[in-house]
């Protein structure tokens, strides 16, 4: 895991304060250190205020940057923190194993669950291994297989969405990326077990919705979910790849927008300063919210769970 904080462009003032605090803290002269303590406390207060000012009014584009932040907790972090006896399951049993999707069985607060998450990796080696979190058809077919398995044994499903999108490449097209995504969407609707999708970072288009035809759709406060990346939208509609800020605003891709549209059921609060600063706290709180929804859904009958999902999606985007 990366220890060094990575600062985003718009966090420069915070970076400057943090650096100064570090400098003062690293002073080894005891006498001086005493004087510095007050100064440090002051600066820390300032940082806190700055974080509050920045993070309570992030622009859509800033949210895109936060959602993609390298230090943000990924699927594996959620699994490690929330799931006991996690048994990873590999392969689509058709073609291969795609580690862009991590999945398996484990205990969540004592309840067996199937976790299916998109994993981006945290350093170059693991990013390559996880295909940068962009699943190939075998990844989606593995997800579909795990859903079927969970349904067969009456085990709830938790999906963790975090992808820039499905992998765009020759092999992906040859092996039916479109069909694999479509079948995954369909499979979600067939489930007669509780199915909860959590957008933890980036919800990129078809590659994301493949794992999100769930009973409950939750989003982290600074995560995004969009039909197209702001970069793609900017280059197509503005014919200018640098119009990303305008595109991010126009697309209405924040958790808050989606909640307003009725696409998302609940926004999972992030500590002030974002999930990437307070990883453990974020994951723990997300776990509590997921558990609350799971507890509610467990009361529904198998048939009602499928019906609940269908009705939810049918009502979505209809005129009220």
């Amino acid at each position: 895991m990366a220890d060094k904080t990575i600062y985003l462009d718009f966090e420069e003032p915070i970076y400057k304060l943090d650096t100064k605090i570090q400098e003062l803290k690293s002073c080894c002269d005891d006498k001086l250190a005493k004087d510095f303590n007050k100064e440090i406390a002051n600066l820390e207060k300032k940082t806190q205020k700055l974080l509050e000012e920045t993070y309570t009014k992030l622009t859509p584009w800033q949210k895109v940057c936060v959602a993609r932040h390298a230090n943000r907790p990924h699927s594996i972090d959620y699994i490690n923190a929330l799931i006991e006896n996690f048994m990873p399951l590999a392969g689509d049993k058709l073609f291969g194993e795609d580690e862009a999707i991590v999945g398996g069985l484990g205990f969540f607060n004592g309840q067996a669950v199937m976790v299916i998450g998109q994993e981006k990796g945290h350093d170059l080696e693991s990013r390559i291994r996880h295909g940068f979190g962009m699943p190939k058809p075998e990844g989606y077919r593995k997800a579909k297989r795990l859903m079927e398995l969970a349904n067969h044994f009456n085990i709830p499903i938790i999906s963790l969405v975090d992808t820039a999108g499905a992998f765009p490449g020759i092999e992906g097209e040859e092996r039916g990326q479109a069909e694999a995504i479509a079948s995954c969407i369909m499979e979600g609707f067939k489930m007669e077990v509780p199915y909860i999708a959590v957008v933890i970072g980036e919800g990129g288009s078809g590659g994301a919705i493949a794992l999100a035809t769930a009973n409950r759709i939750l989003m982290l406060e600074h995560s995004i979910y969009s039909v197209i990346s702001p970069e793609g939208c900017a280059s197509i509609l503005w014919r200018d790849g640098s119009a990303v800020k305008k595109a991010a605003t126009a697309l209405h891709l924040t958790a808050q927008d989606l909640h307003k549209f009725g696409v998302v059921d609940e926004i999972i609060r992030e500590p002030l300063g974002g999930a990437h600063r307070f990883r453990d706290e974020t994951v723990k709180h997300a776990g509590d919210v997921i558990w609350k929804h799971l507890t509610e859904l467990k009361k529904l009958s198998p048939a009602d769970l499928a019906k609940d999902r269908e009705e939810k999606f049918l009502a979505m985007s209809r005129i009220a």
Partner: peptide, 22 residues
């Protein structure tokens, strides 16, 4: 593909049309 001018609601039509043929 999707009508990107309708944002996330256009993406949701992938799920809704799948439900339709289901």
């Amino acid at each position: 593909g999707a009508r990107m001018q309708e944002g996330i609601l256009s993406l949701m039509q992938m799920a809704r049309t799948t439900l339709a043929v289901k």
